[in-house]
Amino acid sequence: MNAGDISQDDVERKYQVLDREAGEGGYHLGPDNEFTKKLVRGLLINEGRYGYPACPCRFSRGIKAEDLDIICPCDYRDPDLDQYGACYCALYVSDAILSNKQSLSPVPERRPPRCERNSRKTIHTTQTGSLSYPVWRCRVCGYLCARDEAPLVCPVCKAKKDRFERFM
């Protein structure tokens, strides 16, 4: 799908899905509808040109292996929600922002600069000899599950399987 082929209906539909999923997981989309829908359009554009919904506010070369941390919802959303009340793009906001108890301020970039990114930290696993199943961790929301393989979709935040890492 090219940027020009994305209709307002496509944006509306995607917005509804994201809004529902956000609600189910205890998250909220930003209250400024026009702003939020522009970001949703950005996600659709990126999905069309890169094949995955890279963060609309971050630069991507369209190489998925380099971008696993910034596929929306990104690895940085939850820490930014905790600290600033919004994700970097402000697609997602906290309860406090939603209820006007806190005002929205710019969120500094938490993603490490390019030169430091290659050495993505992997969690050091402990001895697993005594576990009957490996434990998988969702990098987006921290959900843990013990099973042979990570789930296809995180039941909490809907991140896909490739966002899981071996935890134990």
């Binding site: 970001l39 950005g42 996600l43 990126n46």
Partner: peptide, 9 residues
């Protein structure tokens, strides 16, 4: 800027 970024617009 990026064409898709809200803060850029």
């Amino acid at each position: 800027a990026l064409s898709t970024c809200g803060w850029c617009s």
